[in-house]
């Protein structure tokens, strides 16, 4: 109950920035359109590059635009709030709350993700659907399978962002780790280019890393590349990363609690 309240408060907090949301939708749509024209040219020259056809590729572009803010590829969301509180020393209050820090911030981030999915996820996809021929999930089950994969991906992304923010306990400034994480996420999520286009060795590595859950794995469910029992395998992959990374967060938090630094105290 408490966590639902935290999530919905976070959802409402983001929904007050209407101007920012509209501006973001516009920007996502522009970038989506640019990349579509490029990919159309690429797939015209090589019609089955990476096992995708041109419709798959164009759809992938818009799924990518939809996921940028939803899984917060660039960073942001509730871990940023935590980093700010670590720097200001307010984090002490979080430690004295009767609920776990991790659950609290995860709920807040899921609330944010829900808002971003409904606005900055949905709207550019609609724009993309108007401008280009897209492929939609083949049946209701595929829609459902995709819909399950997205929040799981948010959890993985949350845990990674959280780890970057937690470094602020030691570095007192988390911009550096966040920049490095942003770099890894931008490339290994498949946002720069679809992971299926990578040279084979690099592709295998990329597909095993946690960032693959951000875009490539859900996109392949949507496009019908991952079907049947393979979907369970995909879920197991995402859940395994979520568990490992959340576990790491919990460990780090425990150590941080022992050495809480109160700035300027």
């Amino acid at each position: 109950m408490l966590h639902t309240a935290v999530a919905s408060r976070s959802f409402r907090r983001y929904s007050t920035y209407v101007g920012a949301t509209l501006a973001g939708i516009f920007t996502n749509s522009v970038f989506g359109a640019i990349m579509c024209f490029v990919y159309i040219e690429v797939w015209a020259a090589n019609p089955d590059a990476g096992g995708y056809d041109v419709t798959d590729a164009v759809t992938y572009v818009w799924l990518g635009q939809a996921m940028i803010m939803t899984v917060a590829v660039w960073g942001g969301g509730s871990p940023d709030d935590l980093a700010a509180r670590i720097k200001s020393g307010d984090v002490v209050i979080d430690f004295y709350r009767p609920v776990g820090i991790l659950g609290w911030y995860l709920a807040a981030d899921l609330g944010r993700a829900a808002y971003h999915l409904l606005t900055r996820g949905l709207a550019p996809t609609l724009v993309g659907g108007l401008l280009f021929d897209l492929r939609y999930p083949a049946d209701a089950l595929t829609w459902l399978l995709f819909a399950i994969a997205v929040p799981l991906a948010v959890v993985v992304s949350f845990a990674l962002r959280m780890l970057a923010s937690l470094t602020a306990f030691w570095l007192l400034d988390d911009v550096g780790p966040r920049t490095l994480l942003g770099f890894a996420a931008l490339f290994f999520s498949g946002l720069t280019v679809p992971l299926v286009l990578l040279p084979s060795l690099l592709r295998d590595v990329a597909l095993a890393l946690p960032w693959a859950t951000f875009l490539q794995v859900p996109a392949d469910i949507w496009l019908g590349k991952t079907t049947g029992l393979e979907v369970l395998g995909a879920y197991a992959f995402i859940v395994a990363w979520a568990v490992v990374l959340l576990g790491a967060c919990a460990l780090v938090l425990q150590r941080a609690e022992r050495r809480v630094v109160v700035q300027g105290g």
Binding site: V42, A45, L171, L180, F183, F187, T192, L197, P199
Partner: peptide, 30 residues
């Protein structure tokens, strides 16, 4: 904050180079 500074410097350099890595990968296919 020196540690953060250096990580950010390296991160920014890598990040801005990604676009071109992307183009280079596309050229692996065409």
């Amino acid at each position: 904050y020196p540690a953060s500074f250096w990580m950010m410097a390296v991160g920014s350099f890598l990040m801005t180079g990604l676009d071109f890595v992307g183009i280079w990968i596309l050229f692996g296919n065409v």
